[in-house]
Simulated assay, not measured.
Amino acid sequence: ISDASCRQILLSSLNLHTFELLNSPWVTDLTFCDFSAIPIMLVSVTLASCNLISDCSIRQLSYCKDLETLNLKGCKNVGDKGLEAIAGLVKLRTLNLNGLDISDEGLSRLGKGRTPLVFLSLRGCQRVSDTGIAALVDGPISHTLQSIDLSNILSLTDRAVLNLIRSGMRIVDMRLRDCCGVGDISVIALASMTFNGCGFGGTLRLLDLWNCKGVTLLSVGWFKKPYFPRLRWLG
């Protein structure tokens, strides 16, 4: 599939709701050229592993003001400038940034934006650190964010989890798989948090700690009553 065929689909279907491309090595920024002049009604866009897509495409997609879901998993050429454009999407609730070359600066821009994210995945974003997570939830995004995937970010430590808890966000789903710097301190802090009278462990329903080498037997006792009353899945 090429830029020409993608543009033909988009321009001939202005009421298109969902657009999805997976592993399309020939699709470039030309597909989304001049979106500012086209009344596109897209609500969900997936561009997974489209490696020629860059920040330029994301800036054009930011003109789709009805966009609610954006999946950029594996788009290696999307970076911090793309996040700055995404920060202006006022209806976006689900954002997948797995494996992108983004940094703490980009997360700071996203956190200060107007995007009412509920789900955010940063899995494998190796330039992200504890500082970036703190900057992300230091803005209005902490009022809406409920599910976050920080798996396989090797530089993260317990400090990242503590910053999420301190932000006051309603944590429902937290994935920390393969975060070797996360340990018992995170488990104890999560078990001790409360949210609007929900008890110890707050609203947490899913917690993935697989291969978090800092988690020891000390944490086991914190998975008993009265802690984590709403937890339904533990990795």
Rank of each mutant, 00 (worst) to 15 (best):
D184N: 12
L176M: 08
L162C: 06
R175E: 14
I153W: 02
V182W: 08
G202W: 07
L204Q: 08
A189V: 10
F200I: 00
N196Y: 03
C180L: 09
C180R: 13
A189S: 14
L164C: 06
S155M: 06
N163H: 05
G181K: 07
R177P: 11
G199S: 06
L156Y: 11
I171G: 09
M174V: 15
L164S: 05
S155H: 01
F200T: 09
S151G: 15
V172D: 12
M174L: 15
L204W: 02
D158F: 09
A189R: 00
G181E: 03
F195D: 09
S186K: 01
L190D: 13
G202N: 00
V161Y: 04
D184T: 04
L190H: 12
N152H: 03
V161Q: 06
M169C: 11
N152C: 08
V187A: 09
C179H: 12
V187S: 10
R170V: 10
S151C: 09
G168N: 10
G168T: 13
F200R: 14
I188T: 05
V172G: 10
G168R: 09
A160I: 02
T194N: 12
D158V: 08
S155E: 04
G183L: 02
L176N: 14
A160W: 00
F200N: 09
M193Q: 13
G201Y: 02
V172A: 10
A191L: 06
I185C: 01
L162Q: 06
S186Q: 01
V182G: 07
V187M: 09
C180H: 15
T157A: 09
N196R: 11
I171H: 07
R159Q: 08
G181P: 03
C198M: 14
I185D: 01
L156W: 12
D178P: 03
R175I: 14
N152G: 05
T157K: 01
L204K: 13
M174N: 03
I185H: 02
C179V: 03
G202T: 00
T157S: 15
V172N: 12
R177S: 15
M193G: 06
D178R: 12
S192K: 14
A191M: 04
S151H: 10
D173N: 13
N196S: 09
G181D: 05
S186V: 05
N163E: 09
L176E: 08
R166H: 07
A191W: 04
A160Y: 01
R166M: 07
G183R: 12
C180A: 15
I165H: 11
M174S: 04
M193W: 08
G197S: 04
G197Y: 07
C180K: 15
R175P: 12
G201C: 02
